[in-house]
Amino acid sequence: MPAIDLETEDGRNEALRRMYTIRRFDETAAEHFADGEIPGFVHLYVGEEAVGVGACAALEDDDYITSTHRGHGHCIAKGLDPTVMMAELFGKREGYCNGKGGSMHIADVDAGMLGANGIVGAGPPLGTGAALTIDQKGEDRVALSFGGDGSVAQGQFFEAANLASTWDLPVVFLIENNQYGEGTPVGEQHNVDNLSDTAAAYDIPGITVDGMDVVAVNEAVAEARERARDGEGPTFIEAETYRYHGHFEGDEELYRDSAEVEYWRGRDPIDAFAERLMDRGELSEEGFEEMKDEVEATIEEAIEHAHSSTDPEPEEAYDDMFDGEVPDITAFAERLRADGGEQGGEL
């Protein structure tokens, strides 16, 4: 059963709610980042919500995903808890990685979310690896790797797609073409107009879909998932989308003009889908307002929880990295506890 069934009215409403939750989670994260409450960098998914939600809706609960540096949307789409995510962004012990991963490294293996990743193109090899595991264990699930347009130009993407196609592994490569690799327009990074044309190099099908349309993304991923499960190997899906915010918060965005941003905002995936549900009589103005209020309450709760959460102690820095005890790490933690980090702060 797909995680969210877009063939049903309830499923469509849930997809809208999920997209709006991503929007408000990221807009709220931007405010708190600007206030200096969130360490590190944040890369926001605002504008790209239909890709994450359309894709994850077509997956089943025990399917795997791998993510990118712009991963909050993938996490929420896969069903992770915004409260635990926000604590992670704030660097708190109550976060998904005990506050040590932050915005770019949220992971929840139990939920099938194998990790956001700060390295461009690092997700696809993980996806191929997860698919190899599925294949070797004879399991009935698939892996989906999110990647940006920039990842397709990385050597590791080639390696991941080449092995996955050679071994017919159950993986879907979903490329979010948001038109820029950091500040470089996609046309200046690649010699093909449609990134899906590169699928021919691996002898796998490649298609391009409207990434601002949650139904279009969902249909494509549903078909690709079925191919993967039927042993037909990987599929390359390019979703054409756009990020409304800069590459990271604080980006001066000198590489694009406001008219372009306005054009894409005019195709907003949330407004467009809400309007379609209203036209179909599946959502009322009041119903949408109520949904927004509920999402707002969830996000406020996440912020309150993050504020009341605790910072990890320095001696916990290397915890959770290894399965079992590592004597050097134990000794390191003991030294830190003894002198508060004055001496012996390194392994």
Partner: peptide, 20 residues
């Protein structure tokens, strides 16, 4: 038409791919 011949039927049927 640069978009012709690259739709979802690449996944669902036997449609051929005509690249650019």
């Amino acid at each position: 038409n640069p978009a012709a011949g690259r739709d979802i039927r690449r996944l669902t049927g036997g449609a051929s791919v005509v690249d650019n």
